[in-house]
Design a binder for these strands. Structure first.
Lengths: 351, 351
DNA sequence: CTGTTAGCGCCTTCAA
DNA sequence: TTGAAGGCGCTAACAG
């Protein structure tokens, strides 16, 4: 192969030489600083920079200024539309303040999560928004202590020394069940992916509590867990998990008149599977879920669901982070919970 | 407010002092280099680093090594599930080689796209994967010339000096129409968001061509364009655009027996709106679309669609980029097209 | 107003 | 096998 000449980008010194000024002047002319500089020089510098195609070296700036413009986003997966919406919200805030989003996907691996935290630390990231899969706040706190501004998203980690934004999943769970109870349902099943995440456990707890309040004993036989798999829908583990749960539901001839699904995607998997078996929603069985992803209202039937304000949560997280960065306030373990909203559509009906 | 003591992270020098060796030794001990170093020293250094909580300063490394481990992903929006899948594919490749993904959302703004390219250049990014909204390859070529490794995703920009990965949208369009023709449809409408992007125009061209081949004159009255809006579905512009197109379709009492939709989300918007007006799919009208997002198969009816191998495209883009980086091959304007696949489900039926 | 200069933290020759 | 030292590109303190 032909030898490749390494392309050397022009530096501030090249510009200085070309414009016949000092590097300091170039630096001042190019930065928006209000530092006094004559218009003539400024223009000469700007011109030289343009002719040479000069672009500042970000690494040098970071090193010198001891800071970067990066915000790290650590999430467990990017398959879930929730994160898409959250990213949207986050991006809308940070991009307008000239910051840059570094996306780190842990794939639900605690080890990776820790590595990513270390990476952000290494990079002098301005801050991190973390949807943690860790069960202990130890690692997070360690980085917070070392100065990494952090906001926890979609997860409430007891004892974490940082702002946490979530919704009260348990009361969301209650809300869903109460809606079904009001419609006269008494035999209510629960379909979910494995209850490994705190948020899922919370929803399930809310479900159990509310039934108990009503004098209905929660029943393990009504819990349908679909493994994360791609057996039924090759492109989506949650859809597929929903389908799996529904298959079990049918096999076991479950007589529930309603199913609470852990999220919209699982619900879609459940509904499409039930339909394939000739079971109608909501005539034969009511379905309620959580998230309210954009498609929920355009599904058939339009899905009754508890809105999870994903985009707003993302936006809020970014705002809290930005605030904590610019005011240099930290260590304020503020817990924020967004209130749920029941979106009644057409997948639930009276018994 | 209380004065905040600036937290200073330990440097390589601190570790050197603590371990009573030189900074050079520390550097060598910590890097995986095969440089000879006694086991005893190595362990001492590693221990010191751990006790001090040392983490290398990425900026300094980048400056010194004149390179970063960043891959930039420039996309026009993160609302479209296509990009979600593409990100998934990309991430799966680059994260396994220790690289980091920087997500840059242009919001369909050419100006922002150019700024982002400049930012990546500034940061000595290893490379960029770009889903461009530019209509000319000029800017891209400029950065390619300056050494930024680039792969164009989901867009074929004539004259661009870089690898381009896309599918042949025109033949995808043809494939869709041919399927409908085979089912006996002759009066076929087209529902889309504005035809601003090249990919959309291509699909539309394929649609027109195929009709002409069949002796059917394309008819402007059969083209339904839904503005990007949030009027019908507040959380999703494409869903909403589909709904809008369908409303027009109904208002104008269009008599087409089939609709080609520009993508699955638009199709969902169309279908749910048609249904709301009592029009059945596929009994009254057939719907075909493009993308095959995970939900397509779980919709009702399951959507007949042309699979757009988003994740594979992402993976391929990342692989091409990685390859071009490690082999330092560049300027090889390779055009790659992934073949479409018709997923026949239940939203299309004979006339 | 403009220039000189000293590092920011790290890696990597070169010398020992 | 280890250490000393220069410099990557930039900014900010200090001189002029």
């Amino acid at each position: 192969m032909e030898k490749k000449k390494k392309i050397k980008r022009p530096t501030i010194r090249d510009v200085a030489l070309h414009a016949n000024v000092s590097t300091a002047t170039v630096s001042r002319a190019l930065s928006q600083s209000s530092y006094p500089i004559s218009d003539e020089l400024r223009e000469r510098v700007l011109l030289s920079a343009k002719t040479l195609g000069y672009a500042p070296n970000a690494a040098a700036q970071m090193l010198r200024k001891q800071t970067s413009q990066e915000i790290g986003l650590i999430i467990p997966s990017i398959s879930n539309p929730f994160y898409l919406q959250a990213i949207n919200g986050i991006d809308s805030v940070i991009s307008s303040s000239g910051q840059i989003l570094v996306l780190l996907n842990t794939q639900h691996d605690v080890q990776r999560e820790r590595e990513f935290l270390a990476i952000l630390q290494s990079r002098n990231a301005l801050g991190a928004i973390v949807s943690s899969v860790d069960t202990s706040p130890r690692t997070i706190n360690q980085y917070v202590r070392r100065g990494l501004k952090t906001v926890l998203l979609d997860q409430h980690l007891n004892g974490a020394n940082c702002t946490m934004i979530s919704t009260d999943m348990r009361s969301n769970g209650r809300l869903a069940v109460r809606h079904l109870l009001e419609l006269g349902h008494r035999n209510i099943a629960f379909a979910t992916t494995p209850l490994s995440r705190w948020t899922r456990q919370e929803i399930y707890s809310g479900y159990c509590e509310t039934l108990e309040d009503e004098g209905i004993a929660p029943n393990q036989d009504l819990l349908f867990i679909g493994e994360a798999n791609t057996q039924y829908y090759p492109n989506d583990v949650e859809l597929s998990a929903g389908a799996m749960a529904a298959e079990h539901f049918i096999e076991r001839r479950c007589e529930a008149t309603a199913i609470v699904c852990i999220n919209d995607m699982v619900a879609f998997g459940v509904i499409s599977t039930l339909k394939r078996h000739g079971i109608r929603v909501p005539e034969d069985i009511s379905i309620i879920a959580f998230d309210d992803i954009p498609l929920a209202g355009a599904y058939c039937p339009p899905l009754t669901t508890i809105r999870y304000p994903a985009e707003q949560m993302g936006r809020l997280a970014a705002m809290m982070l930005t605030d904590s960065i610019s005011n240099n306030t930290g260590f304020d373990a503020l817990g924020i919970q967004l209130l749920p909203e029941l979106m009644i559509r057409q997948s639930t009906a009276p018994v």
